[in-house]
């Protein structure tokens, strides 16, 4: 029985990690700029499609005809070789194999640029407008981003292979000194969880231990005073928006091998992430992370057959149910500060 519970716990981690990452970005934007960003899911989706694009470029092939070899149909064999492999040799092969992790390096600057452009271009004009207007404009932006991707990549999901070395399952039970082959867990999910941990840790460290982060935190607490002290808080907040976009994008990049991305993957995650943010408490970063993992794990337990036998359909609604209960009982969420968006 312990094994079953432990396994479900592990299963919840990777989804929880994705929720936590998206909710973290949402909260960063809300906490700094006070904007409810419905386009955040689109940023997740754009990150995922950065990975798709990188792989497209990496796998561009040259076709050479090798007359010395024959294909099974008696024609001269067409040898297809990725260009990078032709240029860089074995290293190119490694690049193709590890296209998803490699995409991270490319996704960071791209997402940062997209985020900053979005904030400076459009969202900047909405700080003084009501929250409903912010929701509407970001919702519109999300539709636009989604449709642009759809018109480029088509409506079907595009599977991304994970690196061959990381395809197996890790025998976590054996690591912990239990019987072998009882608790196994796909390596990539483990990596996703660790990756999320690193990103979350990095964001918190950045806010906690750098001067920049200190100023941002001060600005979150009292924007006016900080700007009176002669600090250009708006510029820093813009960069924080970029950072939030990067976090969402990276979450998307690494999630591609687990779930083939299509154009509406972002929207699917966004609805859940909002719920996560609300459960964690609007504006609370630790709350967002905690609630992300909590809900991921809860969902995993709710999809156990034993649980479903007692309450049918619970796996479909558990997250929303928790959100409803939290909102009605404790509107500022698990770790929300008193008075922030509490009404």
């Amino acid at each position: 029985m312990f094994e079953v519970i432990f396994l479900q716990f592990l299963n919840g981690l990777d989804k929880g990690a994705a929720y936590a990452l998206i909710a973290l970005g949402l909260t960063l934007v809300f906490g700094t700029l006070g904007v409810v960003n419905f386009a955040h899911g689109a940023l997740f989706m754009l990150g995922a499609f950065t990975a798709v694009t990188v792989r497209l470029f990496l796998t561009m092939e040259t076709v050479t005809i090798d007359p010395t070899q024959l294909s099974p149909w008696g024609q001269p064999l067409e040898v297809r070789e990725p260009l990078v492999q032709a240029w860089l040799g074995d290293f190119g092969g490694v690049l193709v194999n590890y296209s998803v992790p490699v995409s991270i390096l490319i996704a960071i600057p791209i997402m940062l640029l997209i985020g900053i452009a979005l904030e400076r271009g459009i969202i900047k004009h909405f700080y003084k407008r009501p929250h409903a207007d912010q929701i509407l404009v970001t919702f519109g932006l999300a539709i636009v981003a989604q449709e642009v991707i759809k018109s480029i990549y088509g409506p079907n999901p595009i599977p991304q292979p994970m690196p061959t070395d990381l395809r197996g399952a890790a025998d976590i039970g054996a690591w912990l000194g239990m019987q072998a082959n009882i608790i196994t867990y796909p390596i990539w999910r483990l990596i996703y969880f660790l990756f999320a941990g690193i990103v979350i840790g990095a964001v918190f460290a950045f806010l906690q231990f750098t001067t920049f982060g200190m100023v941002v935190r001060a600005g979150m607490a009292d924007r006016e005073t900080v700007s009176i002290l002669g600090i250009n808080i708006d510029r820093r907040f813009t960069i924080m928006f970029g950072l939030a976009a990067v976090v969402a994008g990276l979450a998307g990049v690494m999630y591609t091998p687990l779930l083939p991305p299509n154009y509406h993957i972002g929207m699917d995650f966004l609805v859940l992430s909002f719920v996560v943010v609300v459960v964690g408490g609007m504006g609370s970063l630790p709350g967002a992370v905690l609630a992300g993992f909590l809900l991921g794990i809860l969902q995993s337990f709710a999809s156990m057959n034993q649980v479903k036998a007692i309450i049918p359909g619970i796996d479909q609604i558990i997250i929303y149910l928790v959100a409803v209960v939290i909102l009605l009982v404790r509107p500022r969420g698990l770790m929300g500060r008193r008075g922030v968006m509490e009404s």
Partner: peptide, 11 residues
Amino acid sequence: GIYFSILTLAF
């Protein structure tokens, strides 16, 4: 406000 929107969305 926003909480109402999210609650209706959740339901």
